[in-house]
Amino acid sequence: MTETRLDPSELVACPNCDTLHHMQDVPEGARARCMRCNEILMAPKGGAMTRIVVLAVTALILMIAVVFFPFLDLSASGLEQHSSVLDAIMAFSDGMLLPLTFAVAAFVVVLPAVRLMAIIYAIGPLIFDRPARPHAARAFRLAQTLRPWSMAEIFIVGVAVALVKIAGMATVSLGPAFWALVALVLVTTIKDTFMCKLTIWKTLETQRRS
């Protein structure tokens, strides 16, 4: 690593601690870690791109079910109340709390959906060996930025807590949208384990040049 002339294109720097590494081919299933801070630099997996796109499409379809199907049904002494995810979003819609409606809508539905679409747009063409679409890099960067702000899995835990809180006063039955959301969270999590940022960036770069 201490040759007089370093060729930047043959190097990779750890995004965490700036340490330089020589780019090497990492076998599928193996992990390359930073020598200094132990951050995972590369973790390529076989057929990862195809799986990511397929899982992202699945998650996007599930998202449609989440929004439009009934989510929770509540019944207590003859009274009944149906609630969809849209209702939960609209819970804050009167008065001072209106901005929170937009925030919940964004965290639970809009941002996860945009993230999935960005991933499909950026990686989709690569699995067919097609050149990357225009702004594919921007789309994939957006998907990375949105990752902490997609909170569907946190919403699920919120539902669980809410169910315990009202379990004493009413009977709650779970609708298809609830199970769709559970499936969506699982699919998204599996998809993210296949995501090796560096491999995808390198592929995007070569597909743009050709």
């Binding site: 209702d87 819970a91 804050f92 919940v104 539902v159 809410a162």
Partner: peptide
């Protein structure tokens, strides 16, 4: 925040 949203809608 989500708990509050779900409870208020339900």
């Amino acid at each position: 925040v989500f708990v509050v949203a779900i409870l208020s809608s339900l």
